[in-house]
Each structure stands twice: as structure tokens, then as C-alpha cells.
Design a protein around this nucleic acid. Structure first.
Length: 447
DNA sequence: TCTGGGGTCCTAGGACCC
DNA sequence: TCTGGGGTCCTAGGACCC
């Protein structure tokens, strides 16, 4: 019997380049090479930028009204976010990416970790997978490979920079960068020319503190004593330092855990002052949140509702308030959840303000097990639960089949208002492309 | 005029208990 | 006059992520 040599973990991080922009480009190739941005809800600010838009100096989160002039002067193209399209494209990309490793953790809409432990020729396989995804669904990707998740994220950053910023790193590290196959010297050489703020887990706040302490590069941070880091910063940053040194502290999360809280919050298309309109919005948000809750087979024990004015309108009187309404029994019933949210809204509403945003959050979630449905209710109450359960299932099935918002509660409309008239709170989306892949009536026509 | 949305984890501090 | 200490649970707020 030979020795069981356990090879060290190898993680890959695959992500779609400028993902939302790339999705739009798949369906409109004339956008290739053009400066373009995808805008947040309400066409508020830029949440995705093509390389060409980045080159124009457009920052992540830049308010649209501040960069809008570039439409005329630089040919900038802008699109309202089309999350239904991006979600579907994401699913296709993740399905193809999965077979690169022997385990996959979908980390966000545009990136996933893959377990490549013990897989030979990781770099070559990664390059083949990348070509396959580009050919199959048209999304360009970058892949970072290393012995820890933090290092894989860093490798991914190097792969991107080497590809797009000539001179930043050796060009052969472009698109796929495998730190696991390098020597310590080679890695440190790269770390020495990478800013500490690029490290996963180092945000603006900690970045500033590290800089003030003379820590400017990844190599500087890697060489700090973990105990000192824990004392001066936190256990979180301590783990990051260990990970930079090749000690894996974050493992793969192959099966997604159910969410511990579920939110639906929106900024309004226009300022809202009337309680009736806030009720309409909160009814809608609570309904959406309840649907997500049922989607992961959970129940909530509390509902939080908040409203606030716009901090950017300095001339306005400001008001912000939230309230948590406990539910008597854990539930996923839209009617109960909406009821609790509206009760909370009535409590915190104050007249005389220009409201800019509201939201509903479901808290203290638990699994909706059979045992909980068998709670000791009276016959009438149990009958109501069962009836509502069937009603909710029917609601979800219809909305699932015919598109979100096909069927909603009557109270989601302000009484007396013409149903065809748009409410003030509904978000503005003036630049959305068709939902090519998920709506029959918006499928691309090939002529 | 116009500034997103949805999450997680950690920590400090208060309430409460013995 | 002297005025403990350790544990747990909960919540609010901060920091980070995409």
C-alpha cells in the first residue's frame, strides 16, 4: 500500500467579463467595441460598464444624469437593467462552467468557484472551457486558479488586468492565471505589483487603514503576522492573511444554504407623499418577498417594513423609519405577510414628506416543514391555512408560467385609480432591451 | 429634475441570569 | 463603608461582497 498523499486544495474562480454588458452584446453584436453601460433600477446609476466605458473614466455607481452627456460626445450607449435576461444567461453559463471542476459554488450572478483539486492540466482545461463558453453562449470569461479562494479571486483579477491593461502583468497570464503552478518567488513578484485594495475582503475602509499603516501591496499584507492583524483589525482580515499565504480558510459551499433573510426594496420612479400610494408599493413588495420565501420553501417569523426620504434632496425635510412586526405563527402566506407589512407601514407613516424609497424584509426564517404545518390550530384556522396554501401555490404557478406580475392581490392597486395608469412609485425603465430568452413575445425574430 | 438592490458575517453593548 | 463576575442571548450597526 502506498502513501496517501493528499494534494492541496485547488480552487478556480470563473467570472463573466462586464457580465451585464456582455449579455446585451450577445443579442446586439453592434455593441461590441462600443462604450456602453447598464443602469440600475430607475435608470439611476451605472452598474456595469464595458471596457470602452471604463476607458472614458466612468466609475462604478456613477449617477446617470452625471454621465449622460457622453451619449452625445462619446457615443456612449446606455441600457436599463434587464435582470430577467441576465438571470437566464447566468444559468446557462453556470451549467457549462460546472464541469470544469468536481464541485461548484455559484457565488453571484456572474461568478462561481470550482473545486479543481487533483485535476491535472488545470490551466489547459480552463482555457478549453473558456472557449467552449464563448462559443456556446457568447460570454467572454476570465478564470483564476490557486490554492485558496482568496488567491483564486486575486488570480482572476490578474487574468483580467493582464488581458485588458497591457503592461500591468505578463500577457501570458491574460484570461487564465494559475497561481498554483507558480513558485513562491513568482507569486511574490506578482503580489508586489498588486495593490492591497484588490484583495477580496479589503474594502475602502480597511484599505485606507492599511495604507495608513504602510501596507500598500498584496505582498505587504501577506507578510504581516496573523496575530497582529487579528489584534489591530479583525478575525476576518486575519483569515484573509492566512489565505494569502496558501492556508485555505474558506471552503467550497456546494449546496446553497437557504437565505436567512429575504428583501424586496425599491426606490420610486417619482417622489411619493400619500399613504395610499405607499400602501400600494408595500403590498407589491411584500407579495414579491413572500413569493421568494415560498420559492425556497421557508417561513418567516417577522416582517420588517421601512420608508425613507431621499438623502440627496437636501432641501427636503428628511425622515427614515423602520419597524419589525412579529408574526404570531411562522408563515409564507402572502395575505398574512402583506397584512403585517401594511400594519407596520401605518405605524411609521408620517404625512408631509417626499418619500423616495420603501422596502419589506422577511426575517427570522425557518424551513417550512410538514411538522410546522401540523401546528395545533383549531379546525377553522387549519382549514384557512390549507386553503391559503393552495391559493399561494396557484398564484406562484401562474406568475411562474406567464411572467411575474400576471396575477396580484387586488389591494396592490390604489382604490379609484385607473388600473392602466402607472403609479408614481413604479420604477422608471426607459432603456430596457427585450427579454429575448424568457418571454415568447420578446423572442428575437430571425428574418 | 435625475443618485440601485440584495445579501453575509462580526462585534459591541445591553438585558438578564445565577 | 464595602458594591462580583461570568455566561448567554439579543439587537443594532459596521464592514464587506457582487
Amino acid at each position: 500500500m502506498g502513501f496517501a498523499v493528499s494534494s492541496p486544495s485547488v480552487f478556480a474562480l470563473l467570472d463573466g467579463n462586464n457580465f451585464y454588458c456582455s449579455c446585451e452584446r450577445v443579442f446586439d453584436p453592434s455593441l461590441n467595441g462600443q462604450p456602453m453601460v447598464v443602469l440600475s433600477n430607475n435608470d439611476g446609476c451605472s452598474i456595469a460598464r464595458s471596457d470602452e466605458a471604463k476607458a472614458l473614466g466612468i466609475k462604478m455607481g456613477a449617477p446617470w444624469f452625471q454621465i449622460r452627456h457622453l451619449e452625445q460626445t462619446a457615443g456612449l450607449k446606455a441600457y436599463s437593467a434587464n435582470f430577467e435576461l441576465y438571470g437566464d444567461m447566468s444559468h446557462r453559463m453556470m451549467t457549462m462552467a460546472e464541469t470544469l471542476g468536481c464541485g461548484q459554488e455559484v457565488y453571484s450572478i456572474d461568478e462561481c468557484f470550482l473545486d479543481m483539486t487533483g485535476i491535472p492540466d488545470a490551466t489547459e482545461r480552463a482555457r478549453r472551457k473558456q472557449a467552449e463558453i464563448l462559443q456556446g453562449i457568447g460570454i467572454p470569461t476570465c478564470i483564476g486558479i490557486a490554492h485558496t479562494k482568496t488567491l483564486a479571486k486575486l488570480a482572476n483579477h490578474i487574468a483580467k488586468s493582464a488581458d485588458r491593461k497591457p503592461g500591468s502583468y505578463p500577457p501570458q497570464l491574460g484570461k487564465v492565471c494559475n497561481l498554483a503552478e507558480m513558485t513562491d518567488r513568482q507569486r511574490d513578484w506578482l503580489f508586489n505589483r498588486t495593490a492591497v485594495t484588490e484583495v477580496w475582503g479589503v474594502g475602502p475602509r480597511i484599505g485606507k487603514q492599511l495604507n495608513a499603516a504602510g501596507i500598500h501591496t498584496v505582498l505587504n499584507l501577506k507578510r504581516l503576522d496573523p496575530a497582529t492583524v487579528k489584534r489591530n483589525w479583525s478575525v476576518v482580515l486575519e483569515r484573509t492573511v492566512r489565505e494569502l499565504n496558501g492556508v485555505s480558510c474558506f471552503s467550497m459551499d456546494n449546496v446553497p444554504e437557504p437565505k436567512q433573510q429575504i428583501a424586496c426594496t425599491r426606490s420610486f420612479g417619482q417622489k411619493v407623499t400619500a399613504l395610499a400610494e405607499l400602501k400600494e408599493a408595500v403590498t407589491e413588495f411584500a407579495g414579491r418577498a413572500a413569493q421568494k420565501l415560498r420559492g425556497q420553501n421557508s417561513q418567516a417569523n417577522a416582517v420588517l417594513v421601512f420608508i425613507h426620504t431621499s438623502r440627496f434632496r437636501v432641501q427636503d425635510k428628511q425622515y427614515a423609519k423602520s419597524i419589525t412586526v412579529p408574526l404570531r405563527l411562522p408563515t409564507a402566506d402572502t395575505l398574512r405577510i402583506v397584512g403585517a407589512a401594511l400594519m407596520g407601514l401605518e405605524r411609521i407613516f408620517r404625512p408631509g414628506y417626499n418619500y423616495a424609497k420603501a422596502g419589506v424584509m422577511l426575517l427570522d426564517l425557518q424551513a417550512a416543514t410538514v411538522a410546522q404545518q401540523e401546528l395545533d390550530l383549531g379546525d377553522d384556522a387549519r382549514e384557512t391555512e390549507v386553503r391559503n396554501g393552495r391559493l399561494m401555490a396557484a398564484l406562484d404557478a401562474l406568475n411562474d408560467r406567464y411572467g411575474r406580475g400576471t396575477l396580484k392581490l387586488g389591494s396592490a392597486l390604489v382604490e379609484g385609480r385607473d388600473a392602466r395608469q402607472r403609479s408614481r412609485w413604479v420604477m422608471k425603465q426607459e432603456r430596457r432591451t427585450p427579454r429575448y430568452t424568457t418571454r415568447w413575445d420578446e423572442v428575437m425574430a430571425v428574418t
